[in-house]
């Protein structure tokens, strides 16, 4: 009986062996493929991390550069503003200085006339301590003081003022 079954057992054994070998081969292949995929993924993650590090560094450098540029520009603009303010201050001072000018009474008369023309004949005009005149009437006011007129003159120079800081 046993002898009769021996070929069958041998065949079963051979098949089992073949199947085991196949399974082992498949498992090896699968392991190799998983390993390769894991390596690829690791390489990708590493590359992404490197890229993100580089990008972060570049972004940080760009921020620092932007800040430095902004500071530089701020300094230039602040200097221009100071130059303009100084120019305005000197213009006001020079206008105030007209009070000591021998022609000041004539100037006052001219300003009074101009103020009346602008604001109407009913304006009450008086001389201002800063020089020039102020006119006030019902619901109206005209300011023709010397510092204010100097300011308006500077404003009206518009583009000419830029020559203060242009080479």
């Amino acid at each position: 009986m046993e002898r009769a079954l021996a070929p069958l057992a041998a065949e079963l054994l051979r098949r089992a062996g073949r199947e085991a070998a196949g399974t082992a081969a498949r498992a090896r292949a699968e392991a190799a493929s998983i390993d390769a995929a894991a390596r690829r993924e690791a390489a990708r993650v590493l590359a992404a991390a490197r890229e993100s590090g580089r990008a972060e560094h570049a972004a940080e450098a760009a921020r620092a550069l932007a800040e430095a540029r902004r500071e530089g520009r701020r300094a230039v603009l602040a200097a221009q503003r100071q130059a303009l303010e100084e120019f305005r201050r000197r213009a006001r001072e020079a206008a105030g200085g007209l009070r000591a000018d021998p022609g000041y009474p004539a100037l006052l008369r001219a300003l009074t006339e101009a103020a009346r023309r602008r604001g109407g004949t009913e304006l009450a005009i008086r001389e201002h301590p800063d020089g020039g005149v102020v006119g006030e009437g019902p619901g109206r006011r005209v300011d023709a003081t010397l510092p204010v007129l100097a300011d308006r003159m500077v404003d009206s120079l518009a583009g000419e003022v830029c020559r203060l800081w242009l080479p």
């Binding site: 604001g119 619901g139 109206r140 006011r141 005209v142 300011d143 308006r152």
Partner: peptide, 22 residues
């Protein structure tokens, strides 16, 4: 150069101002 300023503001409401005597 000499500006005329109107000082009679009759009413202020929200963003609006009513100026009189202009």
């Amino acid at each position: 150069m000499i500006e005329l300023e109107y000082t009679d503001v009759a009413e202020l409401r929200g963003p609006l101002a009513v100026v009189r005597g202009v």
